[in-house]
């Protein structure tokens, strides 16, 4: 092969394989993409929650996109505890101000960033959350402090529509 010069036929082979490969890819893509979230799943992208009945120190859990979202009205102690943590002590450094726009309200996905379990409220070594599956501890800002989870619990996009209503998504 190597001592032979490319001929017209080699060009034709290469061109045919290339066109064939593009054709196969064009057919395979719809078969792969059909597994991605469909329009009806995407349509459920936002949820409005009435938080007027949540008292300080309480957490409510709502379902958004099939996942639990924790909405916690934090006490002053919890807020000061979250703010006093040094950045060097954090595995995934994030300031509490960046996680809770209004320090009284912490809104985050109640999904452990390790393997997706729902952590338990008011548990663990840091007064925040504890994941029963593989033992990750989160603090009062939902930041990972101990255990196998790599990241803090995710804060979704949300806004206060009015003083009593939070819109998630």
């Amino acid at each position: 092969m190597s001592d032979k010069k490319p001929e017209r036929r080699d060009f034709l082979f290469t061109a045919s394989y290339a066109v064939g490969a593009v054709g196969v890819a064009a057919v395979v893509w719809p078969l792969v993409d059909q597994m991605n979230p469909d329009a009806s799943v995407k349509a459920l992208a936002s949820t409005e929650v009435d938080v007027s009945s949540v008292k300080p120190g309480n957490t409510i859990t709502v379902l958004w996109r099939g996942k639990p979202v924790f909405i916690r009205r934090r006490t002053q102690d919890e807020i000061s505890e979250a703010k006093s943590v040094k950045m060097e002590d954090l595995k995934h450094p994030e300031k509490d101000e960046d996680r809770a726009k209004d320090p009284e309200w912490l809104v985050m996905l109640g999904v452990c960033t390790h393997l997706g379990c729902v952590p338990l409220n008011d548990k663990g070594d840091y007064d925040g959350w504890f994941c029963p599956c593989h033992g990750s501890h989160y603090d009062t800002s939902g930041r990972i402090r101990k255990g196998p989870a790599p990241l803090n619990m995710e804060v979704p996009k949300y806004e206060f529509v009015n003083a009593n209503t939070i819109k998630i998504g």
Binding site: V32, M35, N36, P37, V41, R65, G66, K67
Partner: peptide, 10 residues
């Protein structure tokens, strides 16, 4: 997300 076909197991 692709495996789930959504944002959680459903």
């Amino acid at each position: 997300t692709w495996l789930w076909g959504g944002y959680s197991v459903d």
